[in-house]
């Protein structure tokens, strides 16, 4: 392992790290928004929209991210929509993630016992109050483990971005190997940077999970 090579590569990896993190988190926030909306629509059986939502979930959960990115990045321009690689990256990630997040939120909604709804209505809460103050907090705290697993999964999925020319960590490593053939150094840094990106997420995630669990127990 050549230390000089590693040092000279670090700035490139830092650049790739920030790009990966930026696109990753934009995608994740989009996924959370889509997921929550879709889960809401399905759980409360909103006519018409719930049908579309189910099709959406099945479509995006059962196709690889790479296929979705190819479709968005190379397919859409053929029918007149050209979007930049970066936008394509987080939109693709958001759409894929949305379908997984929707399932996580949905299981959360389903875990709230019916008696909660009945009690709330019996106490005279409005539908709005019922949703925001009774169902949503409990549903979210139940879905936290699933959401966190999805967050880590989505951050790792960024490694296929090389296909649409985004210089993420994976592509930077591949590219440097192709340019200078210092395989060991490039791969070493790749692992280091992925750990630096994901380990804090895991740790903070465990902490949030603990908080969420107390909340379910009502402590």
């Amino acid at each position: 392992m050549n230390l000089d090579v590693i040092i000279s590569y670090i700035p490139l990896y830092i650049e790739a790290f920030f790009l990966t993190v930026k696109i990753g988190w934009l995608g994740i926030f989009l996924a959370l928004a889509i997921g929550l909306a879709v889960a809401f629509v399905i759980h409360f059986k909103i006519p018409f929209l719930s049908g579309i939502s189910i099709v959406y979930i099945e479509l995006f959960r059962n196709t690889p991210l790479l296929v979705q990115l190819f479709f968005i990045y190379f397919g859409l321009p053929k029918v007149g929509f050209t979007i930049s690689a970066e936008t394509c990256g987080y939109v693709g990630l958001g759409l894929l993630g949305g379908s997984y997040m929707a399932e996580a939120f949905r299981s959360g909604f389903e875990s709230v016992p019916k008696s909660q709804t009945e009690s709330a209505l019996a106490l005279g809460l409005s539908r709005k109050q019922l949703f925001w103050s009774v169902i949503l907090p409990q549903a979210i705290s139940q879905s936290v483990p699933g959401i966190l697993a999805n967050v880590i999964f989505l951050l790792k999925e960024t490694s296929v971005f090389s296909a649409i020319s985004l210089m993420d960590l994976m592509f930077t490593a591949k590219d440097l190997i192709g340019l200078y053939y210092d395989t060991k150094e490039a791969l070493f840094l790749l692992v280091v940077f992925y750990i630096v990106m994901l380990l804090p997420v895991s740790i903070i995630g465990s902490f949030i999970e603990k908080k969420a669990r107390f909340r379910t127990l009502g402590v």
Partner: peptide, 27 residues
């Protein structure tokens, strides 16, 4: 295309030109 002589040449001699890199010919 990543890993080609064109990439190496432009990286070395024209570092200011923005490169959009792909990993396959098809893409």
């Amino acid at each position: 295309i990543s890993g080609t002589t064109a990439e190496t040449y432009l990286e070395k001699n024209y570092p200011d030109i923005k490169l959009q890199k792909f990993d396959t010919y098809a893409t």
